[in-house]
Simulated scan of single mutants.
Amino acid sequence: MSFASPAMATTPLSRSCPIRIISVHLLGAAGELLRVLFLDREGHLSAEPHYVPRDEALILASNQQRVLGPQAEVRVL
Rank of each mutant, 00 (worst) to 15 (best):
F38N: 03
R35M: 07
R20E: 11
S23M: 09
G43T: 08
F38C: 07
L33T: 14
L27E: 01
E32G: 11
S16K: 04
I21W: 01
R54A: 14
M8P: 00
G28H: 05
E42T: 12
R15D: 13
G31N: 10
A9D: 08
I21A: 05
V52A: 03
A9N: 10
R41I: 05
E32L: 09
A9T: 09
R41S: 15
R35Y: 05
V36I: 15
L13C: 01
T11E: 15
P18E: 12
H50Y: 03
L33E: 14
L37R: 14
S46V: 06
E32H: 12
L34S: 01
H44D: 02
A47P: 12
I21E: 09
L27D: 04
V36E: 12
V52Q: 10
V24P: 04
C17E: 09
T11K: 14
L27T: 05
R41N: 08
I22S: 08
Y51W: 10
G31K: 12
L37N: 02
R41H: 09
R15T: 14
E42C: 02
I22A: 06
I19Y: 13
L13V: 11
T10L: 14
L45N: 01
S16Y: 01
P49I: 02
S16Q: 07
I19N: 11
L27Q: 08
V36R: 14
D40Q: 00
L45G: 06
R35H: 09
T10C: 00
L39P: 12
